Every structure is written in structure tokens, then in C-alpha cells.
Amino acid sequence: MGVALRDIIADYKTPVSWEALPGIAAVDANNTLYQFLTIIRQPDGTPLMDRQGRVTSHLSGILFRISNFMAKGIKPVFVFDGKPTQLKQATIEERRKLRDTAGEKWREAVERGDEAEAYKQARSSTRVDDTIIRTSRELLGLMGIPVVQAPGEGEAQAAFMVARGDCLYVISQDYDTLLFGAPTLVRNLTVSGKRKIRGRQITVNPERIVLAETLAGLKLTREQLIEIGILVGTDFNPGVEGVGAKTGLKIVQKGEFAAKLKEKQPDFDPAPVMEMFLKPPVTTEYSVAAGHPDAEGIKKMLCDGYDFSEERVDKALEGFSVKAGQKTLESWF
């Protein structure tokens, strides 16, 4: 997922404390749900499920992360993807094939008792489907969290909302957000401060990337950063074989972007991809105002509906400053 710009962005990431993050933040919802479904699993890769076999990893992730956000003064607005553009269809199909293959490998690994391989393949088989989206939106509604439906890419809508000044920053793991023009991107806002990478657990801390500072440091325009993305490969094009972020940076800085594409991909027109990043479909029809959390409704959905422990839900609700039996959160406003 996303565009592989890490190698040239690394020097422009700055550590940021949780105390510096209060305010309204646009959350890349699909990216966040994907994280929950990928990470919140049993040792053999099986996701959290209720007694009926329904996946609940995403609901657990939403409950505890938002509780953590609220306790720290972060007011999230979840922005969901809309209909994918035709440019993305090839990427969607390729990802579907990879997930299906990973799912088969996961089942085989479970059968032979290879727990490490099973966990790895299970993560690769993660998918955010309609049921995940629907139940997530239901829980967010009970929490009083604003939800925005993007007409297209959620990252684009989130970037637009920050650029307009309605939100302070975008929360996402994907660097695509910068290509869409997000002034500020914040990554690694995990509850535990831990993340599993290639089978090992590492400590991660919140980091902030400011687009203007990044462009100034790299001596690039935003259009040139998009050119690097196109060379490396985005959700909307496969990229040039053998070109990583550092090589792409050199090509663009030398003014050889068009020549390299003509040499390697003579039939490819980068203009529609450039247009997608510069002028994506977005909407102004949204609200970032939080509603009143319904503590009893949250408990009814999670405990009665999905077998969550009432004790764990009550603990999470402490982050909302909500006690069982209360249905409002006056201190939040």
C-alpha cells in the first residue's frame, strides 16, 4: 500500500510527542483499519473473532486507539475511501491475487503447524471488506466520532481537509498523503508504541512530516515529488523497474523524468496520474464536529453483540471520561 518514498523522506521525519498533538486530526480510515486487521491477531495469524466467527480485530483497534486519542486531546475525524478510480483497477486486482495466494499459504502453514509462517501469510491476506467498513462506521457513530465519505481516495480528502484548515494533520502510514498535498502527516500513533516488522517487534514513536520542509530540503516542487512517485510506482501506475526513491530523486533533479519514461515506458502517459494527485475528487460537504458518545450503546454493540469483555470496554471508556450509565461527554466539548 502506498508509494515507497521512505528512503528520501527519512531525513525529514521529526519525532513528536503526544503532548504536541491535541486538536482535530483527519484519519485515513481504510489505512487505519488495515493496520488493525493486520496487527491484531493470534500467534498463528487468526484474527480476533467472536463466538459466531465474525472478525472483531478492527472493532478492538478502534475502541482502544480512539480511547487513547481522546485521553490525549486528539479529536479524530475518520475519512473513508470512495469509489476507486479506473487508474487503480490494475493495482486492486493485483492486490486481490496476492491476498488470495497468501490466504492459501496461511491455511497450509496452519495445517503443518508452522506458526511463524502462518502469522506472516495471514497478515498478507488482510482485506478491508464491506462488513468491516459497515461495523466500523457503526462503532464510530456510537462514539460520536465524525465520519467523512470521500468521493475518491480517502488520503486525498484528508489532505484537502488539512489544507483547508479544518484539521491540523493527517494520520496515516502512507506517504501518498504527501503527494496529495497534505501539509502535515503524522505517523506511528499506536497505543502500545510497538509494531511487528518482518516477524520482529520494534518500538515506534510518533513522527511528523511537514510537506513544505520536505520539499525545501529535497529542493523539489510538489509536482517533482509526484514525478518521483510515478517513477517508483503508485496505486495508479506500476513504476519503472529498478527505480527506487533515491534513483528517482536523482532522475528528477537532473530533469530526466520525461526522458526516462520515454525510454522505459514509451506507451505510458503520466499526465492522468499527475492529475489524480494534483486535482483529486474531493468534497466540501463534511463536518468535523464531534457528537456525544453513547457509552451504553457502545457496550451493547461490543459486549452483547460481539462478545467483548465488559471490563475491557469499561476500561477503554475511561479514555472518554465516560462512566458506565452516562451517555454524554460534556468534558470533551
Rank of each mutant, 00 (worst) to 15 (best):
V3E: 06
D7I: 01
D7K: 04
D11K: 02
T14E: 14
P15H: 05
G23S: 12
A26G: 10
N31W: 00
L33R: 02
R41V: 15
G45A: 14
D50N: 15
R51E: 15
Q52S: 14
Q52G: 13
G53Y: 02
G53Q: 01
H58W: 09
H58I: 06
L59F: 12
I62L: 13
L63R: 00
L63S: 07
I66G: 00
S67G: 07
N68Y: 01
N68R: 00
M70I: 10
I74H: 03
V79D: 05
V79I: 12
F80C: 08
K83N: 04
K83P: 07
P84C: 14
L87W: 04
L87G: 08
T91C: 11
R99E: 02
D100F: 10
K105I: 13
W106M: 09
V110R: 11
Y119Q: 07
D130E: 15
R134C: 09
S136T: 09
L140M: 14
I145W: 01
V147H: 08
Q149K: 08
A150D: 09
A150G: 05
G152Q: 12
E153F: 04
G154R: 03
A163D: 11
A163G: 13
G165E: 11
Y169K: 09
Q173H: 00
D174P: 04
D176P: 06
L178I: 02
G181K: 07
G181L: 15
A182D: 01
L185E: 08
L185Q: 03
V186T: 02
V191C: 01
G193Q: 11
R195G: 00
R195C: 00
K196L: 09
I197V: 14
R200I: 11
Q201L: 13
Q201C: 11
I202L: 08
V204K: 12
N205H: 08
N205D: 09
I209P: 06
A212C: 05
T214C: 15
L215Q: 15
L215D: 09
A216N: 13
L218R: 13
T221N: 00
Q224S: 04
E227F: 08
I228Q: 08
I230A: 07
V232P: 01
D235Q: 14
P238A: 04
E241Y: 07
K246I: 00
L249C: 05
K254E: 12
A258T: 05
E263M: 00
E263K: 09
Q265Y: 00
Q265G: 01
D267Y: 04
A271L: 09
M274E: 14
M274S: 11
F277V: 14
F277Q: 10
K279D: 10
K279L: 02
Y286A: 10
S287D: 12
A290W: 14
A290I: 06
I298S: 03
Y306H: 07
D307V: 14
S309H: 04
E311C: 02
E311Q: 04
V313M: 12
A316Y: 03
E318C: 01
G319A: 14
F320E: 07
F320H: 10
A324R: 12
G325P: 11
T328W: 12
L329N: 07
S331R: 10
W332E: 06
F333V: 02
